[in-house]
Design a protein around this nucleic acid. Structure first.
Lengths: 151, 151
DNA sequence: GTAATTTCTAAACCTCACTTGAGGTCAAGG
DNA sequence: CCTTGACCTCAAGTGAGGTTTAGAAATTAC
């Protein structure tokens, strides 16, 4: 057993905590690219542990798999990320996360306004914030009130 | 035309900005309960405008439809919510939202730690936060790293 | 040299929050 | 009365992010 024949998918799954099926799914989505051994089984580099960890973290940050793929493939030559690459990516993620926090905080403040004023008419309050929603889910027009005709 | 024959579904849709299909879907999910007129068509109360607005807002706050149903059916007697009811509900939503903001903020701070230390090993950093994720999606075990054996 | 374990593929299935389509009925205006 | 538009039901489709299943082949452990 040569030292560097790579990890089998099950080993990688144990290392990352992901399901084997999920790793194969990520491959189908173009997020990771193992090679095959003589028997046709997938083999992974050590760096792929980090790659998968990054995927999980980025998901927590609210990125979709296509978005994550873009971040990863934007690396020059689609290389295995260097330490500096990870730093750069992290900075981008931070911006993403800051945005989400800001959006939620705005939402909370608006709700506070509603509670405070006791107007009871939630829909007439400050919660006219189509942006976060309209973009967040892909399908169908879902704008948030905003045009109640003269009652 | 008697004054209080209620709103038809299309009128309600215009008032709320929701699609007609969405309103019917909410009914199927037990979130709203119109009555039927002689011809079998749905008729809604005025209060249902508020009910739907509430549903949309709660969704922005990250509640699923089953969760929203629970909030609504927890009202004593499943009555049409009073002003005080809406206030109480809003307070609960605020708590929910505060939690999410706190979780994201924690996440961001942890990421900052990773960037700062330049350790490059994101998975070994402070991002061991299975909670938000493990509960957020219903199916399958998905814990977040945490057990990389002696590499 | 078996036996047990892993891995392989492909396709089907799952949840969530809806939308769309087919085929048919109801309500309102002229 | 007749048309038009709104409404009805039920089934199936969508997209994200996977899991499950089944049968076969490869690998590992004893």
């Amino acid at each position: 057993m040569a030292v560097s024949e790579g990890l089998a998918i099950g080993a990688l799954a144990k290392r990352t905590g992901l399901a084997v099926s999920a790793i194969r799914y990520y491959e189908a989505q173009g997020l990771i690219a193992p090679w095959r051994n003589a028997g046709g089984q997938r083999r992974y580099q050590r760096a792929d542990i980090r790659r998968l960890s990054f995927i999980m973290i980025a998901q927590q940050f609210g990125l979709s798999l296509p978005e994550i793929r873009k971040v990863l493939t934007d690396l020059p030559g689609n290389r295995t990320p260097t330490p500096q690459d990870w730093k750069d990516i992290s900075v981008k993620l931070r911006a993403h996360l800051d945005q989400r926090i800001a959006a939620l905080t705005r939402l909370r403040d608006n709700l506070d306004g509603c509670i405070g004023c006791g107007c009871l008419s939630l829909p007439k309050c400050a919660l006219y914030n189509p942006d976060d929603r309209a973009k967040s889910k892909g399908s169908g027009p879902r704008y948030l009130m905003g045009d109640a005709p003269e009652t």
